[in-house]
Design a protein around this nucleic acid. Sequence first.
DNA 1: TGGGGTTAT
DNA 2: ATAACCC
Length: 393
Amino acid sequence: MEQRRAGPEEEAGGDEAAEAGEAGCSPVAAAPEEPGGLVVPEGGPPARVIVHVDLDCFYAQVEMISNPELKGKPLGVQQKYLVVTCNYEARKLGVKKLMNVRDAKEKCPQLVLVNGEDLTRYREMSYKVTELLEEFSPVVERLGFDENFVDLTEMVEKRLQQLQSDELSALTVSGHVYNNQCIGYKTAKRLEALGISSVYDLQTFSSKILEKELGISVAQRIQKLSFGEDNSPVTPSGPPQSFSEEDSFKKCSSEVEVKNKIEELLASLLNRVCQDGRKPHTIRLIIRRYSSENHCSRESRQCPIPSHIIQKLGTGNCDVITPMVDILMKLFRNMVNVKMPFHLTLLSVCLCNLKALNTSKKGTIDYYLTPSLSTTSRSGKRSFKMKDSHMED
DNA sequence: TGGGGTTAT
DNA sequence: ATAACCC
């Protein structure tokens, strides 16, 4: 039996809240009892120590660091007509997350708003936090920009082994235990239809029926969660698997407008991908069509990025935007019949299927069997971005 | 309801 | 390609 979150809760400077908890490694693994090891629940799996670091009102904090004059004032971060987050001064005055700007101003006329549509600084800060945590253990899983899970099991085990027995017995754990209730919203609706509205309802509901309704995977997962059991590993996130930029708007209804928006999105993306160093091999265009209902539904088309374009990425002087916009416009026409009127409320471009530059394959049979590698490497351009490579042109 | 991200199907 | 989830 494991607990997902139980243990000391700590507030760091009123800015961050950290939760420390334990959870099981594996539901079946026998726990080898080692002297000085973590306390192992009777017959259960070995305990883990996982810290959950959740940054409060993250965007607002980044803004207050950027501009200290904002500290102490009620501050909201605005994206389009929404206050997506706000600091504690603003919350005290009635501003809520995801509140309409008009409602927020009505509640709190002194509210200071900053635009937070450009996520660059938030993203950078976010990775700084993750990198800091990775110094404690490389096993850090990101969730959004403002949450990290750190598996500290090894570190704690090592520290406990260093303690003398009298020091060990003097150890105390403080803080409070609390039960969490959350479930995904789509699933929550389906559960409610089954008469399940509380965690207790879920605990006591028939497993068989739940599996039939939700599928065995989701059913077993959420029912274990309802008992506070979560054996999922902390999976190191590493570098991002995709880069995307999106823009929402009231209305976009002509091809020219679409092309202009796409150019903007792509230009930012190429900067990001250039800094990353890896190269995307797939490009995707995502749209949202205007509709009174089905608001969250999106459509997308994707295709491989031609290798001659991939090679030019990151070289700076070549115009890679033009051919990529052409590709994106083809994807767009594949989704939208431009001879008919259309009304879009969102455009998004995503670069994914990121591949590291291939230094390891050099000298292997693969290297000579992959035309794009063996024929282009002598052009020299690839070697500029190669890290850990001593290859010369 | 923004502007991101991930995994599963 | 979409759907669901997370923030």
